[in-house]
Nucleic acid binder design. Structure first.
Lengths: 116, 116
DNA sequence: CCCCGACATTGACAATCATCAATATAAAGC
DNA sequence: GCTTTATATTGATGATTGTCAATGTCGGGG
């Protein structure tokens, strides 16, 4: 299972939450921290910002390496982390890989904060 | 200047934002990443959760070390990071240090995501 | 079939981080 | 003033992370 489950509608424990919220379990905290870990880097925040504001809501890697002044492997690495966290969606068309914001992912992450 | 300025009402550039949002500057991204760095640890998320749900909205360090199963210096270290990020407020009363959520800090952090 | 362009993966390295043990500080009580 | 108690700071160590160079993969011409 990858870490993006924390950003998906809760399939289990959708109802019958234990009681209010008993602090925050160790395992649950670990999952939520994965999403914030993905956001805890300046270059990744800039990537999200660029992709969000891009024409058509998507960007290919080749358009992202220059504005960040980073090597292509590094950008690929950051994009992977964001995708693994469930924040970005990857679609390969031809030789290019297009990354776009997962709809509602940022909102769900924001909701994570409110439900602490 | 400490990092919590990103969570305070913007004193400069309160008006006259350059243009929509031109992606996200390197410096601005660095500041915002500091807040998410503070959230990017399971134990710190649990600390926030415990403090938020605590009676009176505050907890002293001695009440936090046991539920996390961490040493006292480590808990102190995490609390400092959360306080430096502008998420927690520290108040010393007698020998004890009481930590409480900075009002609105979590909401402002959530707003940070929406304004990417 | 071979080459080229776009992207991903691997390996290495420096930097940062989480944790603990030991020590320092500081307030309270005797 | 000393002892105790609660918290902070320092130093050390193992783990994680961000970055790049080198290499691998895969699709699209020629």
């Amino acid at each position: 299972m990858n870490s993006l489950s924390i950003l998906e509608p809760a399939t289990d424990e959708a109802c019958c939450a234990p009681a209010g919220t008993p602090a925050l379990g160790a395992e649950e905290a670990k999952q939520k921290a994965l999403v914030f870990k993905a956001l805890a880097d300046p270059n990744r925040l800039r990537l999200l910002s660029i992709v969000k504001g891009a024409d058509g809501g998507e960007s290919c890697v080749c358009d992202l390496t220059e504005p960040l002044d980073l090597g292509q492997p590094t950008v690929s690495h950051h994009l992977r982390i964001l995708a693994d966290a469930g924040l970005l969606h990857r679609e390969k068309r031809g030789t290019w890989a297009y990354y776009s914001l997962v709809p509602g992912a940022l909102d769900q992450t924001a909701a994570l904060l409110a439900s602490l």
